[in-house]
Design a protein around this nucleic acid. Structure first.
Lengths: 213, 213
DNA sequence: CCAAAAGTGTTTGATTTACACCCATGA
DNA sequence: TCATGGGTGTAAATCAAACACTTTTGG
């Protein structure tokens, strides 16, 4: 009838680097699924809530606090070598520039392009696919992109971030109009000079916690 | 550090009766939370997938097969009298007319109006609230209402169902246009005569499995 | 003065909303 | 013939999409 269930939390940590959506993976040095890449995660013991466990995992891997973290779904039977395993998946959006990856680990945490993933341990490819779909949908009516960007950013940077997740180019003028009309972002007094061209106004998110339109 | 985790599945079973959204609850005859109403659910052992466990629970309570069933989310710490409890919540949409509730049970399963719920065991009120929100959102771009209705139905019945979930009146002509333009429903050759007035054309869902627009 | 990215409006089509009258039936 | 709910179309407003030139700066 199976032993007591094993409950684990796993976290899909997204970031955008050079206009490409990336996900943080760790290398499995032990069984099962040895030598494959996998989503970071760990066993849940019950001494904290599932949300807390996912948040702690996120901090351990990236140092990121105050970013967007949401539960995705829960699957069972991920690890066929054991009965009664349950994995509660989360996803998070972090600013790669602020992240300090753990270096001391045996399983080198590393960013991977979402569009060029190898076959991953367990069914992690599927989990990541669903996470991308969910993030893309939520971009349209929430401010969750705040987690991916620094305090201040140009509209171009914001647009590049959106394009990386949605996998399609957006019209610059329409994007600008839409973003500003939502009230989710607002201009600051500062500009960024970055080359032989007109400097860009810097914007900020009006809130750094989740807002739904 | 806490015992091995207890994993349970719970199911929010919706139905519409007389134009009001209802949820199926069972009466707890034993500790904890004795004498309170609660969502049906049960311990998960690992011998089947979580989806299968939820589906089985649904069949046990209602006999309903082939209806819409979706995972909602997973919470921990619902039962403060135990450490390390995890509840995986699902929701389902069933046709009350086809349901045969279990009568032999000590905990009489019973339909309750969603807008008049007493304080329930554990945090079940919150779970139901979220389920209602999710169903309402999905109505707009899926055919999941097929679970709530019989094989054939009038457009008025469909509209009443939508209104019960969305909690707001809809314009009859616009509703009709929108529904038919999606292609999710189609007219049959039959009409229903029901009183001293023009008979209503009967419609059916073009698919009885989930379709997303 | 040249190259490079930033900034800005308008027009068109599509979608959504609001709204009122005739039709078919059973009693 | 009357009461009852079923069935239908159009106009206005809103929203989304397409599209090109001027501005500011550093070199």
């Amino acid at each position: 009838m199976g032993s007591q269930p094993l409950v684990a939390t796993i976290v899909v940590i997204f970031s955008t680097v050079d206009g490409v959506l990336q996900v943080l993976l760790v290398h499995r040095s032990s069984q099962p699924e040895q030598e494959k890449w996998a989503l970071p995660g760990g066993r849940w013991g019950g001494s904290e809530s599932l949300d807390e466990a996912a948040s702690r995992k996120l901090v351990e891997e990236t140092g990121a606090r105050g970013v967007y973290l949401e539960q995705l779904f829960t699957t069972s039977g991920l690890d066929p070598s054991r009965e009664a395993t349950v994995a509660v998946a989360y996803f998070a959006l972090v600013d790669a520039a602020r992240v300090r990856l753990r270096r001391e680990e045996a399983w080198l945490p590393k960013w991977h392009r979402v569009d060029e993933l190898p076959p991953l341990a367990f069914d992690n490819n599927l989990v990541i696919e669903q996470a991308v779909a969910r993030v893309g949908a939520k971009l349209e009516y929430t401010n969750i992109a705040y987690g991916l960007l620094p305090e201040q950013f140009t509209l171009r940077e914001l647009q590049t971030t959106y394009e990386a997740i949605l996998r399609q180019p957006l019209d610059r003028r329409n994007f600008r109009k839409r973003m500003l009309s939502t009230g989710l972002i607002a201009p600051t007094a500062e500009r960024r000079h970055e080359g032989a061209h007109r400097p860009a106004l810097l914007y900020r998110f009006t809130a750094r916690e989740p807002v739904f339109l």
